Simulated scan of single mutants.
Amino acid sequence: MVRGTVAVIGGANLDIVARSGRPVQIATSNPGRTVATPGGVGRNVAENLARLGAPVSLVAVIGRDDAGRRVLRQTAAAGVDVEHVTRVDSPTGTYTAVLGDDGELVVAIADMAATEAMDVARLPMSLLESAELLVLDGNLPLPVIEHVLVHVGTPVLLDPVSAPKAGRLSGLLDGRHQLHTITPDRHELAALTGEPTGTCAQIAYAARTLLDRGVRRVWVRQGACGSTLITGVDTVHIPAIAAVPVDVTGAGDAMLAAYVQALLTGRGDEDAARDGAAAAYLTITSPHTVRPDLSTCAVERIRREHPAPPVQREVPSPRRKDVI
């Protein structure tokens, strides 16, 4: 049983995803197909949570344009509370992604002008303080993220979003503020810490520097190699479920949402992360950024069909650069 609500603060925009029909050739036109759907890291996480049965509210900024109306309408229809989504005169943001013929991301451009209009005055503090968990999207302006970390006692999960966005977050992780979980990939982890992350040992070292800076759990996403969950107790590698990708867009958002939903039901970190791996599998094997038939039953089915291999667990050792 879900024990509380989630508030998600972050981007809500229109995703434009172009997939090439053959291996991509740079600096020329490539035949393929293009689709436009509601997106944004925060919005996607919120919709995934709603489809998984969690009570969720979205705090975001969108434009007073056709794209904004479409995003708002479809997000509400998925079961997300959109009462705290603000409309502004700036255009609704866009995320434009180019995928190869194998479904893997080639390049993406994020135009988040509307999200950058989010400020502290737009934060519904009573909602944030009454939620059981908060999810923050790294696209948010730094003053907003810092205000939440300083003034809201609710546990916070932070998605750094990208390496450039992660680099500017580094100054907030200085030991003054507690974070429940941060979810970088290895490039974002390097930007957050200034440490190399080319090997598993380097990833573990860099992650543990974040533990020293007020982060309680570092969940490093490693794509087809799975993910690694590092806490003050141990380090657990969670393999990805082998899949032929249709579209990788939104996999990380589904992964985070399933993790949060499992935590809301009282499950442990490792079990919740395995739900995340199942949700990521369901998403990359679908053409949708947010899979419309995503559910806890679907996640449980995938976990039954792909039972977890023996746990690869490492007990933390003292952080010493000379052992990397």
Score class of each variant (00 low, 15 high):
2 V>N: 14
9 I>R: 04
16 I>H: 08
24 V>G: 11
25 Q>I: 13
31 P>T: 09
33 R>W: 07
35 V>T: 12
37 T>D: 10
38 P>H: 12
39 G>T: 01
40 G>A: 08
45 V>H: 04
46 A>L: 00
47 E>Q: 15
67 A>H: 15
69 R>N: 15
73 R>K: 05
74 Q>V: 00
75 T>N: 02
77 A>D: 10
80 V>H: 03
84 H>L: 03
84 H>D: 05
90 S>N: 08
93 G>M: 10
94 T>F: 06
94 T>Q: 14
97 A>Y: 00
98 V>R: 02
101 D>Y: 02
103 G>H: 07
108 A>C: 02
110 A>E: 02
117 A>W: 10
131 A>K: 07
135 V>Y: 15
135 V>R: 03
138 G>H: 07
140 L>N: 11
141 P>Y: 05
148 V>D: 07
153 G>A: 13
154 T>R: 11
163 A>N: 10
169 L>F: 09
171 G>H: 13
176 R>V: 05
180 H>E: 14
181 T>Q: 01
187 H>I: 03
189 L>V: 00
195 E>Y: 01
203 I>F: 01
204 A>I: 11
207 A>R: 03
209 T>Y: 03
216 R>G: 07
216 R>S: 08
226 G>P: 06
233 V>G: 05
241 I>H: 00
245 P>W: 02
252 G>C: 05
255 M>A: 08
260 V>E: 00
273 A>S: 09
274 R>I: 08
275 D>F: 12
281 Y>I: 03
284 I>T: 08
288 H>Q: 15
291 R>Q: 14
309 P>S: 01
315 V>K: 10
318 P>S: 14
319 R>I: 10
